[in-house]
């Protein structure tokens, strides 16, 4: 009996054989566009000098700035930064909950008016960079940490609302069905099934968002919205590198501490 191979190796098509070349051309084109388009100022004549004094300032930080009792020192302003991040995150966490229910797609349709409009709303909020929000709020309430709080709480609604609504979409509906089948009404389903199921995830996302907010709060001061960013930008502008060094150190320690703490708490939650 003669067996014939039912299918021969089909020769690779022209596209498959030369695909890599096309990719290569595309990538080279993108990079030449990117490199050619930028005007590199090159190193300034003073760059070496400046780098040297920065390095010098970073290894000899201005320790006296850590606490001097003036209320404008590192420890006071670090605490203020944390307060801005904390208040902003908590406020936005509460406001995000209704937004999340608005935007969650719980009905299996491709386009749903309620959730669709909610998602557009959240995207619209997220579009505004935090810095722009901060400047807008400075116009409304004057420079200071309150503007920072408002900027962070509004910006976080966009992020938290999205995360919350996604966790509502993916949540386990078993508990809700159990309460419904036992004769519970809507309010009971919500209080006894929805809230306990979703709470750990909401809190975990809020903690995660707090980590990000601490970083944001430490730079919002650069535009005048309170916190450690204000002395930082002053120190950079006046070339006070030892001061920059100690503030950088303060920010790094603060962020590392908050990240570790929040990670531990989140591990406990889930």
């Amino acid at each position: 009996m003669q067996t014939t191979l039912s299918h021969e190796f089909s020769p690779r098509s022209l596209w498959q054989r030369w695909r890599w070349l096309i990719w290569l051309v595309v990538i080279i084109a993108i990079y030449s566009w990117a490199i050619g388009g930028l005007q590199f100022t090159g190193l300034q004549a003073s760059a070496k000098e400046v780098s040297k004094s920065i390095a010098n300032g970073l290894v000899h930080p201005d320790w006296a700035y850590v606490y001097n009792g003036s209320g404008e020192d590192l420890s006071t302003l670090t605490l203020q930064t944390l307060a801005i991040a904390f208040l902003g995150t908590i406020v936005s966490a509460f406001i995000s909950v209704p937004f999340a229910f608005w935007a969650a797609r719980t009905v299996h349709e491709r386009w749903h008016l309620r959730s669709g409009s909610g998602k557009v709303m959240l995207t619209l909020i997220r579009t505004f960079p935090e810095i722009v929000l901060a400047i807008m709020f400075i116009k409304a309430v004057g420079p200071g940490s309150y503007a920072g709080v408002l900027a962070i709480s509004i910006h976080s609604i966009g992020m938290l609302g999205k995360l919350f609504s996604e966790s509502l979409e993916n949540m386990d509906r078993g508990a809700e069905e159990a309460i419904t089948s036992a004769g519970g009404n809507h309010a009971q389903v919500f209080a006894l099934a929805t809230v306990p199921t979703i709470m750990p995830e909401f809190i975990s996302y809020t903690l995660y968002r707090f980590e990000i907010a601490v970083r944001s709060a430490s730079i919002l001061g650069m535009v005048g919205a309170g916190g450690i960013g204000t002395p930082m930008i002053f120190a950079i502008q006046t070339r006070n590198w030892p001061r920059v060094g100690i503030i950088l150190l303060g920010i790094v320690v603060m962020v590392l501490l908050i990240d570790t703490l929040s990670e531990q708490l989140r591990k406990k939650l889930i």
């Binding site: 930028l38 100022t41 760059a47 400046v50 920065i54 810095i131 944001s216 960013g229 930008i233 920010i251």
Partner: peptide
């Protein structure tokens, strides 16, 4: 990873001058 992007930008503007570098 702890350093926020704008903070880095502020420092590098001081080193490299204003511009895309």
């Amino acid at each position: 990873r702890t350093l926020p992007d704008l903070l880095l930008a502020a420092i590098f503007v001081a080193v490299f001058g204003i511009g895309s570098t």
